[in-house]
Design a protein around this nucleic acid. Structure first.
Lengths: 241, 241
DNA sequence: GCTAAGCTACAACGGTCGGTGTAGAAAGTG
DNA sequence: CACTTTCTACACCGACCGTTGTAGCTTAGC
């Protein structure tokens, strides 16, 4: 007699087991992985955090590695969803490119506290990328950053069609925008570093948007950006290298 | 009879044991820690990499944790030295602030391949900063980034005195310069990511320097920066986010 | 309330790893 | 050369960890 293929059972991720337990595990694992990193995080600790027996973890996800992969993908998907919502809120009814992009840039660069664990996890991934199977990395990129970037590209493209931006390759423009506006902030949001003061975030975001407009708008943008930037602000010193 | 205090013996780091072995251990440990991270890196692997017995490691550094601390500090000191040399080469005989800062910014933002392991290690540290003892973090900051920042501040301050920049707080200016010029590049130099093409690095560095000049130079700089930047630059598209 | 799927607690295993002790080879110094 | 310091090879301990098996309890659907 053959395997019978019990209809909605486990084996493939996303099936089998009680969904509430599954959620608890994913949330708990995210917290622990983000705090301790893959190797240091013990399955027992995750089980404790999720208020679940370790056996349940092994039943729903076959082993620690696949659990890790599922956690990444799940968390990335959620963050991507939130970011896409943000994109659509700010970039669908643009009238003044400069003002609206500046406003959006500030929101975009401001870290969302409910996703702090996620970004800690991303740091973990980037640190030990050499030990994460390529397939997991791809799945993560696909269901997270790539989707966001595509949507950003789409919306920037629209602005291009309306003559508000001058861009030949929306995809590339999207990458540039994301890097220019968020990079400085994330670069300084590392370890337990005290959260950047709002003014500093705005300042960095503004200069990023300005740089972006430099390349993708008429020179008019450069002029007006000059006024926006220069308010003196207190700053929390922190390092990079 | 009392301890005798055997003059130049171990116990305090930096003493005891053959210096060549010590170097081999520090180098090997840097490679392994950078590749695998603290937890995953086994003392045996380090010993193998350094062509040394594990017992020698435990004799020179008391345990894995202190070895890690010594590795960080040693590596940071070396990198800081190289960066300071760079600073002095480019920022001591400035005549045209804009042109010279742009040139320096490009060099500054270009990753030095001989220190790739170091920056991988920094990524590891930032990922699991919560598990690195605060003392080790402080020692690292002190003997590495802080020294570089101080020197950068000193040199920028000189430019200020010569009237080439307008700055009230050189320290803050130094932080801003470092963040603005290097952040984007390091933000995209993550995992095995293909090295950024030179043109893209220059583009990001330039926009960083421009943003810096926006805040710390007269509006003249802004104007001229307009010309420097807005030559259409070919740029090689790149993946991931 | 019966049935079955899913969950918990618990014990157990094999493996790895940090760290120690020791005996002897190697290397530096006079 | 002898003497001392240091390094190596190796065996060993205790701790932790990923994973599995199992027996019994909980929960949901009929």
């Amino acid at each position: 007699m053959i395997m019978e293929e019990p209809v909605g059972r486990a084996d493939r991720p996303g099936e089998g087991g009680r969904p509430d337990k599954r959620r608890a595990i994913l949330d708990g694992a995210l917290a622990v992985f983000a705090r301790d990193g893959y190797t240091r995080a013990s399955v027992d600790a995750i089980a404790r955090e999720a208020a679940v027996s370790t056996r349940t973890i092994y039943n729903q996800f076959h082993d620690k590695a696949t659990l890790f992969g599922e956690v990444i993908q799940d968390s990335a998907r959620r963050v991507a969803q939130a970011q896409i919502t943000l994109l659509q809120r700010y970039l669908t009814k643009v009238v003044d490119v400069e003002a609206d992009l500046i406003e959006f840039g500030r929101v975009w660069a401001t870290p969302m506290p409910e996703f702090r664990a996620h970004f800690a996890l991303v740091r973990q991934i980037n640190a030990e990328a050499g030990h994460v199977p390529q397939a997991a990395l791809d799945a993560w990129q696909e269901s997270g950053p790539r989707r966001v970037r595509a949507e950003l590209a789409r919306l920037l493209g629209r602005l291009g069609e309306r003559g508000l931006l001058r861009l030949d390759d929306p995809e590339r423009a999207a990458v540039h925008f994301a890097v220019l506006t968020a990079a400085e902030v994330t670069a300084r949001t590392y370890h337990g570093a005290l959260p950047l003061p709002e003014a500093e975030i705005h300042r960095l975001a503004d200069s990023g948007v300005r740089a972006f407009l430099h390349g993708y708008a008429g020179l008019a943008a450069v002029r007006s950006a000059g006024e926006v930037c220069l308010t003196r602000q207190p700053l929390a010193a922190d390092e990079h290298s």
